[in-house]
Structures are given as C-alpha cells and as structure tokens.
C-alpha cells in the first residue's frame, strides 16, 4: 500500500485561473492532469508539493482541431483520444502508433498529451520507493549528491521516456506554453518540441515554475510526411521504452527527399540524428541505404545503464529499430 503525502488542492476552471494559482503559490505546486505519472511519483515521494493543481476542469485544453495552419492538439486530450482520432489516424500514423504504445489501455484513457510531453525522466535508481532510495543514499536527481549510473557524473542522466514526443519532434511540431507576468498578464508562446527538452535529467524541459503546456501544434508542412514509431520494451502489454525510434520521411521508397530520425529513452533528451541528408537525399530505399542509416544511428546513440536492461544490447538494437522504423514509414518490408 502506497499512500500519498498530504497536499492542498486547486481545481482551476481556466488557463488564466490555473496560472493565477501557480503565481499565488510559487514553488509549491505540482500540476496534475491524468495523474498516471505524477501520482505514482508522489507515492514514491519523488515530488513533495504543498499544493496540487488539477487541470481536469479546464475545457479549453480539450479537443483536436485540424485547420489550414495544421493540427492543434489540446494538452488534456487523452492518449486514447489521440490514437483513435480519424484525422490523426489518416495523416499521422506515427503519432497513433506512439500513443497506442504508451503503457496500458487504462493509462491511455487517463494520460494526456500534455502530461506525456512533461513526463518526468526515469531511472533505475529514481523510480523507487523512499525506503529503496534511502537505502542507497539517494541520487543526484532527488535528495542525494551522487549518480549511480555514472558514478563520477555531475549531471543527471535519467531517461526521457515519452513515447509521443519523438514523433512530435520528427514532425517539426511545436508546443504552446502559457505564462503570466508579474502584472498578471497572460501570454502564450510556441517553441519547437525539440527545443522544449534539455539534457538535464533532473528537469528535462524548459518549462519554468508557473508555466503551463496548453497545446501541441503540428505545422501544415508536416502533412505529407510519412511517419512511424518503434518501441523496444520488455513486455508488449505495458512498459516504458528502453529504446524508442520515430521516423518522418518526405518522399517514398523510390525516392527519399528528406529523412528525420529521432531516437529516445537513452538520455534525458531525445536525440535527432544528424548527417542523414547526405546519405538519403534523392536515393531509393534499399538494404544498403538502410544499413547506412542504421550505422549513423549506432554511432550517434549511446545508451546508459539508467534503465534496468543490458546497455550493449540496447546499443545493438538501435540500428535494428531504426531500420525497422524506416521500413514502416515507407511501407516496405523491414
């Protein structure tokens, strides 16, 4: 039995109200939507907020809208809603695959697009009970001073574990963030999802205290990209990724114009592979091309022992999963 720590409770009915609550209690709040990440982490005493701000009452954060400028996905859209939305299914199969591979049906019914983006990083030495962590003297990410993954390390390397974020990045999507200035004026800004994440496992995104993720915006230019997602995990029914690969391709198997590959669940931040255009631009997909892309991925990606599975094996699986995801996106046999 895992009990929750005591906390005060706010349930704002609008983004403005939510930002006002956050501003009135600086440094004391934890934002909760579906609760599938925050609640177990609270039970493990990984977060110790004095107040929970529950977003469930904010109607404007719900809904998926497709317009000329692209696709808008509200932060409170559940992963089940995202994966079953007809427009998303037609145009962005990679998003659907990623959302449908998150955890279990119940968790997808509860978990939200915003929560999935803001998912806390995960590590063998972090996602444990207080008792377990205390026995090891805690760690860099919470309550301690040393990293058990990289013993001399000064920076937390807990793994970014969101399934959908790598696909958003491959699509060039943006995240909209609402904030409130000292005078109480509310403003919104959009930044690329790729720029939302930073390589610090303690807090791996740029969201400042008092800010709120409100929407994900997929640009019109992303229509026509072929997308796919592959996830390596211990159990197909329910597990976080130990390796994830998102692919977006412009063109087709006969002629690839542009290729984006994003690999994650290795460090605190998803990695977008570099140098792919020189290999693929204008070429047809074949075994040699797939091997070359896989080799780039193997060279640029370096798994750590931050999740409890063999690091060398995960490294060897990087090119395998990149090749499979590329074939999925192009609709050809792997």
């Amino acid at each position: 039995m895992l009990t929750l720590p005591a906390f005060a409770w706010s349930r704002p009915q609008s983004v403005e109200d939510a930002l006002a609550v956050l501003a009135a209690h600086p440094g004391e709040c934890l934002i909760v939507a579906g609760g599938t990440d925050a609640v177990p982490n609270l039970k493990h005493r990984l977060h110790e907020p004095r107040r929970l701000v529950h977003l469930g009452g904010i109607g404007e954060l719900r809904g998926i809208r497709a317009g000329d400028a692209g696709l808008e996905v509200g932060a409170l859209v559940t992963l089940t809603e995202l994966a079953s939305h007809p427009h998303v299914r037609e145009h962005f199969p990679g998003v659907v695959t990623a959302a449908a591979h998150v955890a279990s049906p119940q968790i997808r019914n509860m978990g939200t697009v915003g929560g999935n983006l803001c998912l806390d990083t995960r590590c063998t030495y972090y996602n444990q009970t207080f008792f377990w962590r205390e026995a090891l003297g805690f760690c860099l990410k919470k309550d301690g001073t040393r990293c058990h993954v990289v013993p001399q390390g000064k920076r937390c390397v807990a793994a970014h574990s969101s399934d959908v974020a790598p696909v958003w990045i491959a699509l060039g999507a943006e995240v909209e963030i609402a904030s409130r200035d000292a005078d109480g004026a509310v403003s919104r800004r959009s930044i690329p999802v790729e720029a939302f994440f930073v390589g610090d496992g303690v807090h791996n995104n740029v969201l400042a205290p008092g800010e709120l993720v409100t929407r994900v915006l997929v640009p019109g230019a992303a229509y026509g990209l072929r997308t796919s997602y592959r996830k390596l995990r211990p159990r197909a029914a329910i597990d976080f990724p130990m390796l994830s690969v998102a692919v977006a391709v412009r063109g087709d198997a006969a002629r690839i114009e542009e290729l984006r590959v994003v690999v994650s669940a290795l460090g605190a931040k998803p990695r977008t592979l570099g140098g792919l255009d020189a290999i693929v631009a204008g070429r047809a997909h074949d075994a040699a091309l797939a091997e070359a892309v896989g080799a780039v991925a193997h060279k640029q990606c370096h798994p750590l022992s931050n999740v409890p599975y063999d690091t060398d094996w995960r490294h060897d699986m990087v090119p395998v999963f990149v090749k499979r995801a590329l074939a999925d996106a192009l609709g050809v046999p792997a």
């Binding site: 909760v32 609760g35 599938t36 609640v39 177990p40 929970l52 529950h54 049906p105 119940q106 968790i107 019914n109 509860m110």
Partner: peptide
Amino acid sequence: PTLSCLTL
C-alpha cells in the same frame, strides 16, 4: 476504464 489507485 480507469485505474482508481492513480485517480484522485
């Protein structure tokens, strides 16, 4: 279907 252990 919802997990009541994670629902406030």
